[in-house]
């Protein structure tokens, strides 16, 4: 496991223990890959029981907010990013730094009261992964030298079952898949599902990554079939 370096010699130290998705992990949880949320876009995410709107501003700033516009409860992840603001698709209410509402199009002259604010979560990027937490954890999220973000998939199986199929336990698993040395980050999702954020060796050629992709799809089929058998 030398290629991973010291940063993840004790992955459990910086990774949450698996849970059902109903409790909120206190440490960083992987929620998406950085490349999957480019500038000026938003995507839905999860952290325990919370729905998140994860978005990146035009200048590249990443943010993770409660996925709910305080006005009428519409999911903000359906919204649109202009400049440094995320706006709700329903009535166009715009939110800036710190989740503060800065614009209500129905009342263009109005300076929105400070009380109109979207709850904000902690977010950090490391090794091409977007990590989220409810309260800012003590340290930064883990770095994984030698690997780069590859693919995120959703698996309809418990995080523990997915970890076991990858030959490990917990939520950070270093293993060999399709002949490649990979890091698998497991995110507990609601409804007994798991997110799998896969990191692959830096500099892999497309054909090798195609093989890895096929391998992880096959692994998902096996885990889900086994889960269905036990259900």
């Amino acid at each position: 496991m030398g290629m991973m370096g010291a940063a993840c010699s004790d992955p459990c130290a910086s990774a949450p223990t698996p849970d059902t998705g109903d409790t909120v992990p206190t440490d960083w949880t992987p929620a998406a890959l950085s490349d999957d949320i480019p500038v000026a876009s938003a995507a839905p995410g999860q952290l325990g029981p919370h729905d998140l709107a994860i978005w990146r501003s035009a200048s590249g700033r990443i943010a993770a907010w409660a996925d709910r516009c305080p006005h009428r409860g519409m999911r903000l992840s359906h919204g649109f990013v202009r400049g440094e603001r995320l706006s709700c698709i329903y009535h166009g209410w715009g939110y800036g730094e710190g989740g503060q509402c800065v614009r209500i199009p129905a009342h263009p002259e109005l300076t929105p009261p400070e009380a109109i604010r979207v709850p904000v979560f902690s977010v950090a990027e490391a090794s091409g992964v977007i990590w989220v937490a409810e309260e800012a954890p003590d340290g930064p999220p883990p770095e994984f030298p030698g690997v780069v973000a590859f693919r995120s998939l959703q698996v309809s199986a418990a995080p523990e079952a997915l970890a076991a199929a990858l030959g490990g336990t917990g939520t950070v698993i270093e293993t060999v898949l399709g002949g490649a040395q990979v890091v698998a980050l497991i995110q507990p999702l609601r409804g007994g599902a798991a997110g799998l954020h896969l990191l692959a060796p830096e500099g892999s050629d497309p054909a090798a990554l195609d093989a890895l992709s096929a391998e992880v799809e096959a692994l998902r089929r096996r885990v889900e079939a086994a889960e269905e058998m036990t259900a």
């Binding site: 649109f80 202009r82 603001r85 698709i89």
Partner: peptide, 10 residues
Amino acid sequence: IHRLHELKPE
């Protein structure tokens, strides 16, 4: 399918 409002300036 909603309009991609981000294509229009604020």
